[in-house]
Each structure stands twice: as C-alpha cells, then as structure tokens.
Write a protein that binds this DNA or RNA. Structure first.
Length: 420
RNA sequence: GUGAGUGUGGCCCAGAGGCCUAAGGCGCCAGGUUGUGGCCCUGGAUAUCGAGGGUUCGAAUCCCUCCACUCACCCCA
C-alpha cells in the first residue's frame, strides 16, 4: 500500500473547516489592507533560492528539494515564499506600478527536515509582501496586519518579538563587534556555534545550548549599532507601533534564519508553545530585489504557517464554522424512482439547493440513516406512490414532520425554511 | 544528520510466553414485520498482532535486524 511521503499529510474533509476558516479570514484581512493575491509556481530555478535565502542558510544547505528535470534544468520546490514573489515582481515589471505593490499568497512550502509536531516537509504558508517602499509606516502596516489576522481568527496569547538587525552599512560594524565579543568565549560555545562564528555570527545569538545562551546574554546588541538611518527607521517604527497600541517585546537575539533580512525583523510566538513556537515571522528585505538583478527596491513581508495556526486554534479551543450540510437528501425506492430522483435533484440544484442523491439499492431505513449522518435538513422520499402521483414526500429531519408535495412546491417549502 | 519512544481491524485501545481460532469502545453494515433517521436492542464484517529472522514443545507477548510513525535536537512556519 502506498502512503503519503514522510512529512506530508492529507488534509481530510473533517479538517477542512479549519482551513477554510483560516483562508477566508486571511483573504478578508488582506482586503482590508489592500493586498492582492498572487500565485507563483511550486518550483523555481534552484538558483533563485540560493541567491535570495542565502548560501549559508540551513534552508539552502540541507533542506531544499532540488531536482533536475528532463532538460537538465536545476529546479527546487520552494522552501519559502518571498523569493518567488520578488522574482515575479521583477519578471513582470511591477516596479512600473504605483509603489509599494502589496501582494499576498497561499503557498505550499517544501523543506527536507525531520518532521515533528508543527513541522512538516510540505506545509502551507499564508504570507504577504509590500514591495517598493522603505517607510517604517509599511513595517507597521505589515505587523499590524499580521496581528489583526491572528486576532480575527480568535487567537489570543501571543507575543510580538521585535528587533532590528541593521543594513548593509551598519551590520558589518556590528558583526565585527559580535565576533570580537565571541572570539575569547569560543571555548564555551558549542561546535556549531564555533563554525557560525566564522560563517554567520548573527546565528550565534539564537543557539539554544546553555553555554551559548549564557554567552548571548551579554553579547552586543544589533540595535545598539544601527547607523543613523536604520536607527531612525527603528525609532519611528516603534513609535508607530506604540501609537497603534501594539505591544511588542524587544528581542535582541531575534535574528531569523534567512540571509535577506535587513533592519526590521519580527516573529509572532504563542505564549504557551511547544518548541516549534513561531506562528509567523517576517521582516524587511531592502537588498533582495537588487540582489536578484532589479534596481534597489526596499520591501517588507510576513509569512505564517497554516498548520501551526490550526494547531493553535485547536489548543485554544477556538470554534470554527462547521462544514455546510446538504439541504436535501433524496431517498428513493424502486427503479422508476431512481430516475425521478436524479431529475428532482437536478431541478433543486438549478434552484441553488444542495442535494445528495442516495445511490445504490438500500432500504428506506438505511437511506434515512445515511441522510441523518449526512446532516441533511430534509429528506425527499420518492417511492412508487410518489412516482405515479408525480409528488415527493418531503420530510423535515429536525421536526420529523413530513408532507407529500408536488414537485414544484418543494422549493418554496425549502425557501420558506431558508434552506439552501 | 543525532537521540528517545511507539507500532494489535477504518479509529482509540486491552492483552506481558500456552486460557488469544486476540477482548472492549467508536465507526461501518444488516435486522428489530410490509416505505421512515437520530436513542435503544440484536446480529455481522473487518487484524497474515509493522516486516523478516531467531529462541521455545508453544510467541502479539522474549531476542536480533530492518521499516514506519511520533517526539525532541539543529533550524524554522
């Protein structure tokens, strides 16, 4: 027997209400903020991710699904969403549109990792990007949007972690300081961190090993080394957030694992969370479009993992709208009735009524049982009597009342009961 | 990649060497008189006890190998 590949999951009908709920809330929030949907391919030129996410990151190093197609193109299933949106921005000359261009997406994301709670090899992200404007207003907008999305879902108990990691100008200075600080401590660091010290010192800060944690405590903070512009940007962002009544926690150890981030980085974490805590995260990536061959174009984005949202909704006992039940279940007895059932169903559906037709050859009792477990509001019974009279027996499953009706009267009864 | 735990019908699970030709619950199917659901009652189907090998007179139960899943680390959504 075949099984879904490791780290992938079927989202069964019973799970769909959560997904529908999340998707519709997301789309509603995006409408409120003027973001338009974009869909990009599930795979791209592998180089796109190597160049944007960064050669030194775990995502590119060990988590990408890379493959060659039959023409020897090196492709990768997307390990994140931002790179593709930026590629599309450039490819379609969106820099000619009024800036910033605001877009959102739902995307399947693929990363070759060992699965565990809240982590999958294929997962789904909802994200948004605002490309073409450097103002901290936009940072505030994206953060506000992310938070109001979670609130609109009914999630409480999460925090906003905020940091600024500077830009091309000031970050090198900071990294020097960081190295200077860590060098003498290198004996106390874990093996990974010792290599990070040379390759990607920012990552030293979010190592969870106790020794490294201690070292990180009193490490220099990026926010203290920002250049004039970055500092101003960060100050105004904090000001805007304050004005909007958004509470945040400054977290100098929040650095994020993708290389393209500049200035603002943020993460949203549930208060009582397992280890895969991040509900969502994002930040500014002012150099990325340039790195991909466009002109210098500032941008900021945010993404959230839908599986983790579902997890949190369940943990917090949030109720989501139930799946719609069929309005009418048609039960039929005998060959002549079967034909009549199909015709009746067609008529009802034309009127916009949802109908399940009982198929096969079951007893009326069995058909009613099926109707009950389908949650149908009404059952239309068509047997020999009804066929010859040209009627149906319409049974209200709630009240157990039933009446024999002319075909044409069925719809008006349903409408009177506001059933669709 | 590393470490730990688990693997019994569609699902939850009992079972700890012979009483297991594997229990129970949920679900599914059928019946409880002729064309009527939800509750209740009765009956039924569905398990080569993850796979392979070994120990033993005898293994779901012990040992080995493999596989899968879960959780954790790394990192993140």
């Amino acid at each position: 027997m075949f099984k879904a590949p490791r780290g992938t999951a079927d989202i069964l009908p019973a799970e769909q209400p959560w997904w529908r709920y999340i998707e519709s809330q997301a789309a509603a929030v995006c409408r409120l903020y003027g973001y338009e949907r974009i869909s990009t391919p599930a795979f791209e030129d592998a180089g796109l991710f190597a160049r944007s996410v960064g050669e030194g990151t775990d995502i590119v190093n060990k988590e990408m699904y890379i493959f060659k197609d039959r023409s020897d193109n090196e492709l990768a299933l997307r390990p994140e969403g931002t790179a593709s949106v930026c590629r599309a921005y450039l490819e379609h000359g969106m820099d000619n549109q009024p800036q910033p261009v605001r877009m959102y997406y739902f995307a399947d994301i693929f990363r070759y990792e060992r699965p565990q709670a809240g982590r999958y090899r294929q997962h789904h992200q909802f994200g948004c990007e605002a490309i073409g404007e450097a103002s901290p207003m936009l940072d505030a907008e994206v953060i506000h949007m992310a938070l109001s999305f979670f609130s609109s879902l009914g999630l409480t108990n999460f925090t906003l972690q905020l940091n600024s990691i500077g830009c091309r100008k000031c970050r090198p200075v900071y990294l020097q300081e960081l190295k200077k600080y860590y060098q003498p401590l290198s004996q106390e660091l874990c093996e990974d961190c010792r290599t990070r010290l040379g390759k990607n010192p920012l990552r030293l800060l979010d190592c969870k090993k106790p020794g490294c944690q201690r070292a990180a405590e009193s490490a220099p903070r990026s926010a203290d080394y920002l250049c004039e512009e970055c500092s101003l940007h960060f100050q105004s962002l904090k000001g805007y957030l304050g004005d909007l009544g958004i509470k945040y926690t400054l977290n100098h150890r929040l650095v994020r694992g993708l290389d393209y981030y500049t200035r603002t980085v943020f993460e949203i974490q549930p208060l009582e969370g397992g280890s895969q805590s991040a509900l969502g995260g994002g930040g500014r990536y002012d150099d990325l479009i340039g790195q991909l061959g466009g002109k210098a174009t500032p941008a900021i984005g945010f993404a959230t993992g839908m599986e983790r949202i579902v997890m949190n909704l369940k943990n917090q006992g949030v109720e989501v709208p139930a799946a719609e039940k069929p309005a009418v279940f048609i039960a039929c007895l005998g060959e002549a009735a079967r034909c009549e059932a199909l015709k009746t169903a067609a008529r009802l559906r034309e009127a916009g009524v949802s109908v399940i037709v009982s198929a096969g050859d079951k007893s009326l009792k069995a058909q009613l049982r099926n109707a009950n477990s389908a949650g149908a509001a009404y059952v239309a019974i068509i047997g020999e009597n009804e066929v010859s009279a040209g009627t149906v027996m319409l049974r209200n499953m709630q009240t157990s009342e039933q009446q024999e009706l002319q075909q044409d009267d069925v719809i008006s009864v349903l409408q009177a009961d506001k059933i669709k």
